[in-house]
Design a protein around this nucleic acid. Structure first.
Lengths: 335, 335
DNA sequence: GTACCTCTTGACAACGATGTCATGGCAGGA
DNA sequence: TCCTGCCATGACATCGTTGTCAAGAGGTAC
């Protein structure tokens, strides 16, 4: 595609001529450097204002070797989890005078890599990545070359980098305990494809928690799920001698499918969903959830990235963020 | 803040030396230019691969005057409307080989301007802005200087730019007609502060529609709203001789406040909400809404921006996107 | 053989800023 | 008065790439 080139704009040369100083003095004023007489600074500021001068960051970055830009690669910017995360990243970046490049990898390894390479060609100072399920040895090379990398929500294979995770197992355990405390003795687990790292972790958490409480741990239906598939699973579980009385779902999309599936199946089971969503309190019954905090993840991860940029060379760390059980109504028995 | 400078990376000079060609030939290969013998191209590609060379886009941009970057300024990236919009913008940008810088203005004029200036210092090829309610004459100067500007969701004062809006009035009219078709003759309108452009347009739409149908047009409570303020308004409206039987809300946050306010007031009024939200179909009763399509707005706006970048110099246009009435249950009478 | 054209390649200047270092002027102290 | 140090300023090379144009080699037509 042919693109019209950037518009002609005044340069430091124009400002310098107007103010009667050198280009270097203009640079000192623009960058707030000390060592300029106040009257000179006033004169230069006036010229900048008159001309509508705006520094060319590209030239600055080329000479200085610094971009003050970070890159964020998520799965889908429109997804509530990732948009909350991105919003927080952008806020912290802005506070540190950095701009944010964002891209959606859509779970496609090639696309993730293409976006990341494009960011690196821009010489981003650091990367925040929600990794796809693929080998990330190529990312290790970038990290080794000096570009700090922070992984979000999932670990990556082949690269030792700072990683921020949610306590999936702990969250699931608290949900199971909640249901048990409400009298449930047979709980079903609905989740996504276990090839997804978070789905596998939550499944593990379910099995460990139920076993440790002496309950059945094998009433499991892994996805992908639709309302229809959920309805079928619920009907099958309900017809057993020892019927399932409560369901735990592995993420908020599956929670939605479960809510719709229960309507389809004409069944009213107790429910706890993994991850919160906006209207959980308005549903009937109001849905009890294990809440993550994507904004906190985004903030902390970006804060650590800034520390890396400031010279922190300590070993890569993995931070597991707690979940929170938000008790509403849906965990109680329905009959 | 002190930032470690960008890591040392191989340059075209290194590739050229390894492949035994000139820098210009390396540039031709990297940029896919014709006029390089196939065997030469193979040799250069091998050297690029061996060295892990990645073009320095900053240098390229400085020399060529092109950045292949666009800037998007929304109110809050974590808000569902804006995240869907941003997701669509990023997709279209990617398709056109452009990267996306995003920033959240948070409705603060100074912040919006600061972010926009930072993008311009990066010499973004174009801007997509959800404008705050302030004078945008400064943006007009940028547009005049050649940076295409597309406004989203609201118009801006002081600048003639391409603008994408939702048919607020038409959406409100269809909601009023829907409620009337279900027998309602006294409808209340709940919305935000009318200083917000969209709130004012929707209020106008409500008044025009109710008047044209011979109904009362003055049963209005403008916000900002909380569940408590909504509960108070609903109680007052319900106690009249000619009680309000249905409510139209001006945006999805107010819809949520209305749902919670109805529970607080112990009232069950019919409801149509302006703008859709994820679980509207799962509420009891399922909520009828006037749906916008932020993703379509983002796509079309970015597509037009790309056309501007490609040389389209036709006059600025305003595109009004239709709304869609999503009929569920909440518009029916409750008794 | 000569002239012209095409293909391929490379030399070098330019982009707009910042980093580095030299220079001049002025003030203070001996 | 002379010397030294500090402040302010400016000249110029550098960053890594792309745009521009020149040159050489080979092929074809007259």
């Amino acid at each position: 595609m042919t693109q019209i080139s950037a518009p002609l704009r005044p340069t430091m040369y124009d400002v310098a001529r107007r103010a009667g100083v050198s280009i270097k003095t203009v640079s000192r004023v623009v960058n707030g450097e000390p060592g300029v007489r106040p009257d000179t600074r006033v004169r230069v500021d006036a010229a900048i204002s008159d001309l509508g001068y705006l520094r060319n960051d590209g030239a600055s970055q080329l000479r200085s070797g610094r971009t003050d830009t970070i890159g964020l690669v998520v799965e889908d910017l429109a997804n509530p989890f990732y948009s909350a995360l991105a919003g927080a990243v952008e806020r912290v970046a802005r506070r540190h005078r950095h701009l944010l490049l964002t891209g959606s990898g859509e779970g496609i390894a090639d696309q993730e890599r293409s976006i990341t390479s494009a960011f690196l060609a821009r010489r981003v100072a650091g990367l925040l990545v929600v990794p796809t399920a693929s080998d990330h040895a190529w990312l290790a090379q970038e990290a080794a070359a000096g570009t700090p990398v922070v992984l979000l929500d999932r670990p990556a294979q082949g690269v030792a980098a700072d990683t921020f995770l949610t306590d999936n197992e702990g969250g699931v355990r608290s949900a199971v305990e909640h249901l048990v405390a409400h009298g449930h003795r047979h709980i079903g687990f609905l989740s996504d494809d276990p090839d997804f790292w978070t789905a596998a972790r939550r499944l593990d958490g379910f099995r460990t928690a139920t076993r440790s409480l002496g309950l059945r741990s094998d009433t499991v239906a892994m996805g992908p799920h639709s309302p229809d598939s959920v309805a079928a699973a619920l009907r099958a579980w309900h017809e057993q001698d020892d019927p399932v009385t409560a369901v735990l779902t592995g993420n908020n999309l599956v929670t939605l499918a479960a809510l719709r599936g229960m309507r389809l199946a004409g069944l009213r089971l107790s429910l706890v969903g993994f991850d919160d969503f906006e209207l959980a309190d308005l549903l009937t019954p109001a849905v009890t959830v294990v809440a993550q905090d994507p904004a906190s993840m985004g903030e902390q991860a970006t804060h650590l990235l800034m520390q890396r940029l400031a010279g922190d060379a300590s070993p890569p760390r993995t931070v597991v963020l707690p979940t929170r059980l938000v008790v509403r109504e849906s965990g109680r028995p329905t009959s």
